[in-house]
Nucleic acid binder design. Structure first.
Length: 420
RNA sequence: GGUGGAGUCGCCUAGUGGCCGAGGGCGCACGCCUCGAAAGCGUGUGAGGGGGCAACCCCUCCGUGGGUUCAAAUCCCACCUCCACCGCCA
């Protein structure tokens, strides 16, 4: 969501942002609706003031005066009802438009319709070289008895999986490694609900745009969140934090659920795209300052890179284009990790700055040192999402025997074993 | 799942239809006093929207949404959340 005053003052910037992000939004309609909401509100205010003063006079009035007042009140009531209806309708229309209004993307974002316009800004490491024919993660996991696909799909359908044995320990080691790194950076570890209310999903911006991506539990009016960010924003929604509490830094842990409706039939093999996965998410609430926001963006990105560097995984960092970053993002950098079986990179991390777009939706504010109440900035980035990263790890670190060389950083979590 | 109780301005609390256009205390801020502080005294102390060059003014908000009434924090209904007990349960 944007500031209505900002939209009034900079309609061209909003128009340009919508165009760059490929969002269908009629800014003139938005401006007109905003104008009529304000006009109606003003009329209603005046009528309301009149009505209140009439009711106040009533108590002290004699019978004759009361009859007179009643007549005036009846007339006013009709007018009030009409104004309220008109205002409610205009407000609903405005809200609908506001929810579809994008953040203005940063000036460095490549302009383009989709991911083909993304730009690789750096790469780290080298693809591993093998003196044997490497297996893909599905073959490898099955060879080691580390995963069950057929049986899992028997109970849970397509894209289901079960991890077994050392694969589970390895997955847990990845999460522990990420959590410890974030703890060292003054993040607070927090496990959050995945089962969330609709308002939480509107607050983060998943709704109304990507409803079809989210599992719904209609019997209880709940949904399964695709990321811990939904609960983390929701938990602070409606709050006014003190400036001293900022920045809020969370390592949010949760199971994540995604319907993958837009990619039906793609990546159906293995662990690359599943409906249920485990994620440690980096999440920051900071003050509403572009430079501060930028610093945190760099910090979150750098932490994710450190994690991958520690694991010795080859990756690239991508500057995401306006058309690929989504409605609420100011800036987005994906990190794509190398998958030997695919002979290419696949997205394993996504680092996003939302500026105050999300905070406005969720009504998440803080009191600045001068006493002013402002909408905060929010940012998020993956720390570790498995099993996708687990798949990358086993593919990259496999030996000819099918054993896995454990990266040094994970050994403390695996009883110092060097090979699995 | 059942029964009972509760949700008021950061915190505690007053408030059972019009003097609530929300009172008091704590906390906080500023001032007086003081060498300085404490205590004491005084003043101030929420959010949103709108209008005005400005001092300032108007409207909305007492968990949320409806309803009754000329008038609702107060009465009625639904929902949300919390507490207690019973049942069930990892």
């Amino acid at each position: 969501m944007l500031d209505r005053r900002f939209i009034r003052d900079h309609p061209d910037a909003v128009r340009e942002a919508a165009r760059a992000k490929g969002i269908d939004l009629d800014v003139d309609e938005l401006l007109q609706t905003d104008k009529s909401v304000r006009n109606l509100q003003h009329e209603l205010d005046d009528a309301q003031a009149e009505r209140k003063s009439s009711a106040r006079q009533f108590a002290r009035a004699d019978e004759a005066r009361r009859a007179e007042l009643r007549a005036g009140q009846a007339e006013l009531d009709g007018r009030l009802r009409q104004l309220r209806d008109e205002l409610a309708e205009a407000s609903a229309q405005l809200q609908e438009l506001m929810l579809r209004t994008p953040t203005i993307p940063w000036e460095g974002a490549p302009v383009g319709a989709d991911e083909s316009a993304n730009v690789t800004i750096r790469t780290w490491g080298e693809p591993p070289s093998f003196d044997f024919e490497p297996l893909d993660h599905v073959e490898l996991l099955e060879k080691r008895g580390w995963a069950e696909f057929a049986r899992a799909r028997k109970v849970a359908g397509e894209r289901a999986y079960a991890l077994r044995g050392d694969a589970v320990l390895l997955e847990r080691a990845l999460h522990s490694y990420a959590i410890d790194m974030l703890l060292n950076r003054d993040f607070t570890v927090i496990s959050v609900p995945s089962l969330v209310k609709e308002e939480a999903l509107i607050g983060t911006g998943q709704f109304p745009g990507h409803r079809e991506e989210t599992y719904a539990i209609p019997a209880d009016d709940l949904y399964l969140a695709g990321t811990a960010e939904v609960a983390l924003v929701g938990m602070h929604s409606g709050e006014i934090l003190d400036k001293k509490q900022l920045p809020v830094r969370y390592a949010g842990i949760s199971p994540c659920f995604r319907r993958e409706i837009g990619s039906a039939g793609r990546d159906v093999r293995g662990l690359l795209r599943v409906h249920q996965f485990e994620k440690v998410e980096q999440f920051v609430i900071c003050e509403a300052d572009a430079a501060e926001s930028d610093r945190w963006h760099a910090e979150l990105l750098s932490t994710a890179e450190h994690l991958l560097q520690g694991l010795g995984l080859h990756y690239e960092v991508v500057e995401t284009s306006t058309g690929d970053m989504g409605i609420g993002k100011y800036r987005m950098n994906d990190i794509n990790t190398w998958f030997p079986s695919l002979n290419r990179f696949r997205e394993t991390h996504s680092c996003s700055s939302l500026h105050d777009w999300q905070a406005r939706r969720a009504n998440l504010r803080y009191r600045d040192t001068d006493g002013t109440v402002r909408f905060a900035h929010t940012l998020n980035n993956t720390a570790i999402a498995t099993p996708r990263l687990l798949a990358a790890l086993v593919e990259n670190d496999q030996a000819a025997t099918g054993e896995i060389r454990v990266p040094e950083v994970l050994r403390p979590y695996l009883r110092q074993r060097e090979l699995l």
